[in-house]
């Protein structure tokens, strides 16, 4: 079909017809005398009340229960986790304390061992020193004894040597004179030495 004025008119007709019809028959919603229209309000009230009662007594509490159960569950799980964390913290703290204590004990043990050892070494060193001292002393006294012996014999040896020398040199030897001379020389020598 071509786009003729007739076609346009027929297409536009509904637009013109709409208000006319609405006014002529009116909106069905405004036919308040219609028994069906009155009936739907009564039925609607009844259905709405049943709907409301089912919702408030049964359907909505179900949703509330599930949501509440979930909240309780989450809360209890959180509490559980919190408690576990607290326990873990406590255990860690105890472990740290135990470790510190062990380390201190070990330090103390090491210290005591060190001190004991040091003491033992010191005692041993002292003993050794005392022993050596004693040995040195005895040796010294021995030396002094030997020296005194030697010194006590020296005049006699010197006298006899001087006698022999004097006899060889001059044929005679006065024992008393030689002894005096040796004594004098010894004294001089001792004086010189000291």
């Amino acid at each position: 079909m071509r786009l003729t004025p007739r076609f346009l008119l027929s297409a536009a007709a509904p637009l013109a017809a709409l208000p006319g019809r609405a006014v002529a028959e009116g909106m069905p919603q405004l036919h308040f005398k219609d028994p069906l229209l009155q009936g739907q309000v009564v039925w609607g009230a009844l259905i709405f009340i049943i709907f409301y009662l089912l919702l408030s007594r049964s359907a909505l509490p179900r949703v509330a229960d599930v949501i509440k159960a979930r909240e309780t569950r989450i809360q209890s799980d959180l509490d559980l986790a919190r408690r576990a964390r607290k326990d873990a913290d406590q255990a860690q703290k105890e472990l740290c304390e135990a470790r510190e204590k062990a380390s201190e004990d070990a330090k103390a043990t090491i210290q005591s061992i060190r001190e004991t050892t040091r003491e033992a070494i010191r005692v041993q060193a002292e003993e050794t020193a005392a022993r050596l001292e004693a040995e040195i002393k005895s040796a010294e006294s021995q030396i002094a004894l030997s020296r005194n012996n030697a010194l006590s014999n020296i005049n006699e040896i010197a006298s006899s040597t001087a006698m022999t020398l004097a006899e060889r040199l001059i044929g005679t030897a006065d024992e008393k004179v030689i002894a005096a001379a040796v004594e004098q020389a010894h004294a001089a020598g001792a004086e010189h030495v000291s």
Binding site: G39, W43, G44
Partner: peptide, 18 residues
């Protein structure tokens, strides 16, 4: 009973929500 399609669809709507 003055039943029209309006109460029918009210009941259907309520039933769907429930």
């Amino acid at each position: 009973l003055r039943l029209s399609q309006a109460p029918l669809f009210m009941a259907i709507s309520s039933a769907v929500v429930l």
